Amino acid sequence: MSATARKSAPNADDIRALKGKTPIVSLTAYTTPMAQVMDDHCDFVLVGDSVGMVLHGLPSTLSVTMEMMILHGRAVARGLSKAMMVIDMPFASYEQSPEQAFCNAARLMAETGAAAVKLEGGVDMADTIRFLVKRGIPVMAHIGLTPQSINTLGGYKVQGRDAQADAVLADAHAVTEAGAFSVVLEKVPQGLADRITGDIAIPTIGIGASAGCDGQILVVDDMLGLFTAFKPKFVKRYADLGQQAQSAVADYAAEVRARTFPAAEHVFADQIPAIKE
């Protein structure tokens, strides 16, 4: 069922059931107003740790904290009623042990109202995913380019070309067998993404992967042109709001300096005009 036809937010099973059907629509969100804008159109909304880069000016996602995710998760939750909310587990909140992952995942869900968590990793995270799912934590997996691992991956490179393909395919099967209800494929070659989508029983959510994936996700600030520090190849800009905002601020500044703003219609009279009978 599409987002526009739903009366209530889907859950993990509903997203899993969309495998092979109408493509799943998703975007990231970090604030209440942005969540409200996308609520009618998205099947799920991700409170991504990309918030660190696009809203806080951090150089990567590695400095994002649990407290930051909870703050933004609560804000997004206030803006959603139709779309499912998934929240990222930040770096160092789940890698140490399945027990650590459970404590932090449970906290994220309890304190934000998120319906599921997302974590990065494939074969190496399968036991953790299995541990969480058995204890009532729905998990969205994330393989291919995993931004929290850029220091070991050597940067934001395509993952899965040539000899790497078997490893990424193994990751996809591992998270599926561990119980993830869906998996994000980031910066994975098109052919490999299509193969994974055909091989596994859970939906694939592409970001720099393939139109053949079961769904797509983008960072909302990227696709709206609000984040302009760099533009990944896989991003299509559907608007240029950053440039529009700059122009609007420049116009405002010029009018303030020229004393043309505020104008008469923007100020208040010293006395309330009398009402004519």
Rank of each mutant, 00 (worst) to 15 (best):
residue 196 I to M: 11
residue 255 E to T: 12
residue 115 A to F: 00
residue 236 K to W: 00
residue 160 G to P: 01
residue 86 V to F: 03
residue 141 A to Q: 01
residue 112 T to E: 10
residue 269 A to S: 12
residue 40 D to C: 08
residue 46 L to D: 05
residue 158 V to Q: 14
residue 145 L to W: 00
residue 76 V to G: 05
residue 221 D to Y: 07
residue 240 D to Y: 10
residue 118 K to W: 04
residue 20 G to T: 09
residue 113 G to N: 07
residue 251 D to E: 15
residue 172 A to W: 00
residue 148 Q to E: 15
residue 159 Q to P: 01
residue 40 D to G: 08
residue 124 D to R: 14
residue 117 V to Q: 04
residue 241 L to D: 05
residue 63 S to T: 02
residue 58 L to W: 05
residue 128 T to K: 12
residue 106 A to M: 10
residue 242 G to Q: 02
residue 50 S to E: 12
residue 39 D to T: 07
residue 7 K to N: 15
residue 263 A to E: 09
residue 216 Q to L: 03
residue 156 Y to G: 13
residue 168 V to A: 14
residue 48 G to Y: 02
residue 221 D to P: 00
residue 67 E to G: 11
residue 270 D to S: 13
residue 93 S to L: 08
residue 19 K to R: 12
residue 42 C to Q: 05
residue 25 V to N: 02
residue 116 A to M: 05
residue 177 E to H: 14
residue 264 A to N: 11
residue 124 D to H: 06
residue 155 G to L: 02
residue 267 V to I: 15
residue 11 N to H: 11
residue 277 E to P: 03
residue 259 R to G: 04
residue 182 S to Q: 06
residue 10 P to L: 02
residue 173 H to E: 15
residue 259 R to N: 15
residue 80 L to V: 03
residue 59 P to I: 11
residue 181 F to L: 14
residue 69 M to H: 10
residue 260 T to V: 03
residue 274 A to P: 01
residue 210 S to K: 08
residue 46 L to W: 07
residue 92 A to V: 14
residue 190 Q to L: 00
residue 185 L to R: 13
residue 13 D to G: 02
residue 195 R to E: 08
residue 109 M to V: 09
residue 234 F to N: 06
residue 243 Q to Y: 01
residue 151 N to K: 14
residue 23 P to A: 09
residue 137 I to T: 03
residue 277 E to C: 10
residue 109 M to G: 04
residue 147 P to H: 11
residue 101 A to H: 08
residue 71 L to T: 07
residue 92 A to N: 13
residue 186 E to D: 09
residue 262 P to F: 15
residue 94 Y to W: 13
residue 126 A to D: 01
residue 99 E to V: 15
residue 177 E to M: 14
residue 204 T to N: 02
residue 117 V to T: 12
residue 199 D to N: 09
residue 154 G to K: 11
residue 67 E to D: 15
residue 179 G to K: 15
residue 62 L to F: 02
residue 73 G to L: 08
residue 7 K to F: 07
residue 245 A to Q: 08
residue 114 A to G: 08
residue 153 L to M: 15
residue 225 G to R: 02
residue 54 V to M: 05
residue 100 Q to P: 01
residue 271 Q to A: 10
residue 104 N to V: 04
residue 240 D to E: 13
residue 220 V to C: 11
residue 133 V to G: 10
residue 75 A to L: 03
residue 54 V to H: 12
residue 44 F to N: 04
residue 271 Q to R: 14
residue 66 M to C: 06
residue 118 K to M: 06
residue 8 S to R: 11
residue 87 I to S: 08
